[in-house]
């Protein structure tokens, strides 16, 4: 039988939905028994929230110090230690999971299966490579499987009605070579890009940081999160956490509306799980139209104001 330990991600106050998506993926392994591990300096409140995720039996609540719960070197050894009784160790494929999980894999002497997009059975999984231009089936016949779960490929499950047991742990030797200094967080008033059902996204065609206000206004009008192509972030039109694509965020909203984005393959891989993709670009030959469900060719500076009026 599969015993699966999942690394829970949180921001100090709530559990990241990526955790729930990892639980959803784990539940697709037949007969799996699922536990979580959560780290925090003051762990009890967040552990209680973790215990509400339906389908979880036990939450290992680990008390850390000096904000070590934010640091891969601060928590990876404990995850590796706890994994002794498990067949699988999963983490969400967020920047947090991507930072920590390979450390766990190295401590366990395993290769990691990154970005699982489909569970075939307990030991075989599908994952994308080459910016999603190919999909491979990977299997492991070793004693432990360490993996990250591509969050855009799995649904958020029930995060409120669970009743897992909480088991308390602590870390004896706190590392001091890596220290958390600060977090400059992005705009928190709009919906979270990774979980929002609607996303308004701008590219190089937006032309400037000032013009990007158009995207924010349209997003606020329909209650959407905002995203961007790499070109827009590189040009300084908007902050890095808005980047969607191979090396940014992989998202799966119900509606993705892109403005002035040509659609490089690296960007398309970040949106191809979206329900409906709308493309608005002045270049009718832009590759974004190859994946768009609805395309409109024209000047976005005329189209956006008209959309604001008619939506």
């Amino acid at each position: 039988m599969s015993k699966i330990l999942i690394l829970a991600q949180h921001d100090g106050s709530s559990i990241n939905q990526g955790t729930s998506k990892a639980v959803t993926a784990a539940q697709q392994i037949q007969g799996a028994s699922i536990d979580l591990v959560v780290f925090a300096d003051d762990v009890s409140t967040i552990a209680t929230k973790a215990s509400k995720l339906a389908g979880v039996n036990t939450v290992h609540a680990v008390t850390t110090s000096n904000e070590n719960w934010k640091l891969a070197q601060g928590i990876a050894p404990k995850i590796a230690e706890l994994s002794a009784n498990y067949s699988h160790v999963f983490g969400p494929s967020t920047t947090f999971g991507k930072d920590v999980m390979p450390c766990v894999a190295a401590l366990l002497g395993q290769n990691q299966i990154s970005d699982i997009m489909q569970v075939i059975d307990a030991t075989t999984f599908k994952r994308p490579i080459y910016a999603g231009n190919a999909v491979i089936s990977v299997s492991s016949n070793h004693d432990k499987i360490v993996a990250t779960i591509r969050t855009a490929s799995f649904k958020t499950g029930d995060m409120t009605s669970g009743s897992a047991n909480i088991e308390n742990h602590s870390i004896e030797n706190t590392q001091t070579d890596t220290k958390f200094i600060s977090l400059q967080a992005g705009n928190s008033e709009r919906p979270d890009l990774q979980t929002a059902p609607k996303v308004i996204s701008g590219g190089r065609g937006i032309g400037s940081e000032e013009n990007f206000e158009l995207m924010y206004k349209l997003a606020d009008k329909i209650g959407a999160a905002t995203g961007a192509s790499r070109a827009a972030v590189d040009a300084g039109y908007c902050p890095n956490e808005m980047q969607v694509g191979q090396t940014g965020k992989i998202i799966a909203p119900d509606l993705y509306m892109s403005f002035g984005i040509s659609g490089a393959i690296q960007h398309l891989t970040g949106i191809k799980d979206a329900g409906t993709i709308v493309a608005i670009n002045k270049d009718a030959d832009a590759p974004i139209y190859e994946v768009a469900d609805i395309g409109l060719v024209g000047d976005l500076f005329k189209i956006v104001p008209e959309l604001m009026e008619k939506l």
């Binding site: 395993q110 999909v135 089936s137 016949n141 191809k272 993709i277 139209y289 609805i294």
Partner: peptide
């Protein structure tokens, strides 16, 4: 402890949209 890669496939294409 190598993982074995069993098969490569092309991603599922999206359905053709409308203009």
């Amino acid at each position: 402890k190598e993982l074995s890669i069993e098969n490569y496939e092309s991603p599922q294409p999206r359905q053709k949209g409308v203009m």
